[in-house]
Amino acid sequence: MKRVFLAALLALSLALPAAAQRSGTYDVTGRNPDGTDYTGTLLLTQIGLSTFRVQWVIGQDEIEGVAMVSGLTFATAFTLGEQTGMGIYQLQPDGSLVGVWTTAGAFAQGEETARPR
Rank of each mutant, 00 (worst) to 15 (best):
F107C: 09
L44T: 04
L97M: 03
A67W: 02
I47V: 10
T79W: 14
G65L: 04
D61C: 10
Q90Y: 07
G48R: 00
E64M: 15
G40F: 01
L42E: 07
G105N: 03
V98N: 03
D61M: 15
A77D: 11
G81C: 08
Q83E: 11
G99K: 01
L49Y: 10
G40S: 05
F5G: 11
V28Y: 06
R53M: 05
G87K: 05
S96N: 02
Q55M: 11
E111L: 12
S70P: 11
A8C: 12
D27Q: 15
R31P: 03
P116F: 06
I63R: 12
A11L: 10
A104R: 14
D94R: 08
T103I: 08
Y38F: 09
I58E: 07
Q92V: 02
F52Q: 01
L72F: 13
T51E: 09
A104S: 14
I58P: 02
L9A: 12
Q60L: 15
W101P: 03
T39H: 09
Q60V: 15
W56E: 10
T113W: 05
L6H: 09
D94L: 06
F52T: 00
E111H: 13
T29Q: 11
I63C: 07
V66I: 13
S50M: 05
G24V: 04
G95H: 06
R3V: 09
A114E: 08
T84K: 12
T76R: 10
A8I: 10
G105P: 00
Q90P: 01
K2F: 12
L42V: 06
G71L: 04
T102V: 02
D34N: 06
K2W: 11
A104E: 13
G65W: 08
Q109H: 10
V54W: 02
A106P: 00
M68C: 11
R117T: 12
E64D: 15
E82D: 15
T102F: 02
A8R: 13
L6A: 08
A20T: 08
T36H: 10
G105I: 01
S50F: 04
T113V: 11
R31H: 05
V4Y: 12
W56Q: 10
G105A: 00
I88M: 08
F5W: 14
Y26A: 07
F5E: 15
Y26E: 05
N32M: 11
M86R: 13
Q21V: 14
A114T: 05
A106D: 03
Q55E: 15
R115N: 13
Q21K: 11
Q92N: 05
T29M: 06
G87N: 04
